[in-house]
């Protein structure tokens, strides 16, 4: 009879705690009844038990009958969204780490091996973390049944309404996943550049293919002060990209949201750049010194003019980019 207990254990183990004792008792009775009937008074042998258990079906199958539903960590409704989120986030994290690796290698090329080992370790650690957290998030959504309709295919399974059917994507209005990815990766690249700005974001002076010194564009002290705002700006930018991705195509609402976010980015940028305090105040002096140009020389004035012009051009480029992005959104949303 030991095999009967093993069978019952194998079934009940797959069932919710609260039902186990009751079902075990019932199954025990059933198996005894079946044995009694099949044997008709003959002593029960192991082969009889085996035959009865095989008739009852595999423990997994029987337990599934009892549960009535199949169990998923992430069910078929959520799985496509799970896959695409996983892919996107992994691509972004891997690129971010690639960027950091590249930056560190430029700064200290001698320790490239060290950086590479660091890269491998953090790739492994981060990828594991990303995988675990995304899976945990989706598993929780599955378990509590709280998945937002956008993730589970766009409409309620039971009470769906034909008007909720997502429109067939219009190629011209569609937001391409690649563009969103590029946007996010570009934001991260910019952030890394600024963060390491006193080494990277400036005029790089090389000597024998070796980074000798950097004349930074930005004022390190002021930058540290403003860093939280810069993080905020990048975060807003990433939120913008993600909302574009979730919308999937250009709509009036998305275009308006895009306008608002771009406006916020513009205001933040203006605040960060006010009085030009974030710029390296000694840039012209430092560059002239390294080139051996004195204040009296004509070249000094040229450097000064170019520096000011470059700043204004960069600012103009930034504003124009934001404008184009905003207008493009409206254009794509409203064109037929």
């Amino acid at each position: 009879m030991e095999m009967v207990e093993r069978y019952i254990y194998a079934v009940t183990q797959r069932l919710p705690q609260g039902q186990r004792i009751d079902i075990a008792e019932e199954l025990r009775g059933l198996i005894e009844d079946m044995l009694e009937e099949r044997n008709d008074g003959r002593p029960v042998e192991n082969t009889d038990i085996e035959r009865v258990l095989i008739e009852l079906g595999s423990p997994a199958e029987l337990a599934e009958e009892y549960r009535g539903t199949s169990r998923f960590l992430v069910g078929p409704d959520l799985f496509p969204a799970y896959l695409s989120v996983m892919k996107m986030v992994l691509i972004i994290t891997v690129s971010a780490m690639g960027i950091i690796f590249a930056v560190e290698t430029i700064l200290t090329p001698m320790s490239i091996l060290h950086h590479f080992v660091d890269l491998l370790i953090s790739l492994f650690v981060t990828a594991t973390q990303v995988f675990a957290w995304i899976t945990a998030g989706f598993a929780a959504a599955q378990y509590f049944g709280v998945a937002p309709p956008g993730l589970s295919g766009g409409y309620n399974r039971k009470n769906w309404n034909p008007s909720e059917l997502p429109p067939v994507p219009d190629k011209k209005k569609q937001i391409k996943r690649g563009d969103v990815l590029t946007g996010i990766i570009f934001s991260i690249l910019l952030l890394v550049l600024v963060r390491f700005s006193n080494h990277l974001f400036g005029v790089l002076l090389f000597e024998d293919h070796h980074l000798e010194a950097t004349i930074p564009f930005l004022n390190e002290e002021k930058l540290l002060e403003l860093m939280p705002l810069i993080y905020l700006m990048v975060a807003i930018g990433i939120v913008k990209e993600i909302s574009k991705l979730m919308a999937g195509r250009w709509t009036k609402n998305l275009a308006i949201a895009n306008l608002v976010i771009n406006g916020a980015i513009f205001l933040l940028a203006m605040f960060i750049l006010r009085d030009q305090a974030i710029l390296n105040p000694d840039f012209v002096q430092q560059l002239s010194d390294s080139w051996g140009i004195s204040k009296q020389q004509e070249e000094y004035t040229t450097i000064k003019t170019v520096w000011k012009l470059s700043y204004n051009l960069a600012l103009a480029a930034f504003v124009i980019t934001l404008l184009i992005d905003t207008v493009t959104g409206f254009y794509k949303a409203f064109r037929k």
Binding site: I23, E26, M34, E55, L56, G57, E61, L62, E65, G68
Partner: peptide, 12 residues
Amino acid sequence: VEPGTLYPLLRR
């Protein structure tokens, strides 16, 4: 009816 079908059905 298989017992493996009937017992879970009764419970449901």
